[in-house]
């Protein structure tokens, strides 16, 4: 069974169909593919996608750049051209740098947590044990629940007065009085990071698990014969095998975590104060709460330029893997 390209795994493993060279009479037909006339049909197949891409991606993209050079309120039809003023104002604003710092902390901590828990979970779930498939399904669930359901669920669990988390921690004697996890500016960032890790670690687990299953069992058996211990086996066989998957997963996750809006908006709206106001949430609040779409666009463009590096690296790796296969 061939594997559809999936953003991660195709970089590692590639199934190829055996080609059948015996059908010679097809040579003439195969030429069909190269014929000019036939290509018009091919382009016709692309037209709907091309149109949608132009209207829904290219035009908005260009417009986002265009808007970022204008001062325009959301209810205005036309803005005033102000050159780089939006950018200058943003880069001079300490609020931007605070948001940038928060974004970096948010991305870095959630990625670290996801990868640690995700890899450990994958290693555990790769072992043979009773009830494994059930355990696998359970562990993947946080990632497949709707965002709004898990965020509201955590609000319920973390509720200051009657949340289960406070109750359990107090029963265990870890805290003396109820803690306002999402409502205090000292703890809100920590709380949303914990929730982010919980929500997204299964993504790492799925990809690592898929890779683990392609490692040949003989390698471990041979290592056992040589007297290797569990740690040596992990370090010399497992880790080299999952290294490339991990690299791509970290790259992709960084991109997605950095751009994450919904989970933060639903949990804290960037607050209390600005304690969880990351770059994308800040851009949102400028554009749709402050109604300054020019400035909001400039914010979004800056954020885009930051993640562009990640995107380019990813595109390169992908292209290489495709050509190499």
């Amino acid at each position: 069974m061939p594997v559809p390209n999936n953003g991660v795994l195709h970089l590692v493993k590639k199934d190829n169909f055996p080609k059948n060279p015996n059908i010679e009479r097809l040579a003439a037909v195969r030429k069909l593919h190269a014929q000019k006339k036939d290509n018009y049909i091919g382009i016709a197949f692309l037209i709907p996608a091309l149109l949608l891409m132009l209207v829904l991606i290219v035009y908005p993209l260009v417009n986002a750049f265009y808007l970022s050079f204008h001062r325009q309120m959301i209810y205005e039809i036309k803005g005033v051209f102000i050159g780089f003023n939006n950018y200058i104002r943003i880069l001079k604003d300490s609020a931007f740098w605070d948001a940038f710092k928060l974004s970096v902390i948010w991305t870095f901590s959630t990625i670290t947590g996801q990868v640690l828990i995700g890899v450990v979970a994958a290693l555990i779930l790769h072992e043979d044990f009773k009830g494994r498939s059930l355990a696998r399904a359970f562990v993947m669930l946080p990632f497949f629940m709707p965002t709004v359901a898990v965020t509201l669920m955590w609000k319920w669990l973390l509720n200051e007065q009657y949340g289960a988390v406070n109750y359990i921690l107090m029963a265990l004697g870890l805290i003396n009085e109820p803690v306002s996890w999402l409502g205090s500016s000292d703890l809100a960032l920590f709380s949303i990071i914990m929730i982010g890790i919980w929500r997204f670690f299964p993504f790492v687990t799925i990809n690592v698990l898929a890779r683990l299953q392609t490692i040949q069992q003989e390698l471990y058996e041979a290592a056992s014969v040589d007297g290797a211990n569990a740690w040596q086996k992990f370090w010399n066989i497992t880790f080299p095998a999952i290294k490339s998957v991990l690299a791509v997963v970290i790259l992709l996750r960084s991109l997605f975590m950095f751009n994450k809006v919904d989970i933060i908006m639903l949990l804290t709206r960037g607050g209390p104060g600005t304690s969880t106001l990351t770059l994308p949430v800040q851009a949102y609040s400028y554009a749709f709460e402050g109604m300054q779409i020019g400035r909001g666009s400039a914010n979004a463009v800056i954020q885009f330029l930051i993640v562009l590096t990640f995107i380019i690296i990813y595109l390169r790796v992908t292209k290489k893997a495709q050509e190499g296969a």
Binding site: G42, L61, N259, V261, Y284, A300
Partner: peptide, 30 residues
């Protein structure tokens, strides 16, 4: 099919998938 720009279009698709949604939401709303 074989025509010029088809690889570019594919790569652009992947690129579009990675765009921050906050960048698209303002112009798409307008």
């Amino acid at each position: 099919f074989n025509y010029r720009g088809r690889n570019l279009f594919s790569i652009f698709s992947l690129f579009a998938y990675m765009l921050p949604s906050i960048l698209l939401v303002i112009p798409l709303y307008l």
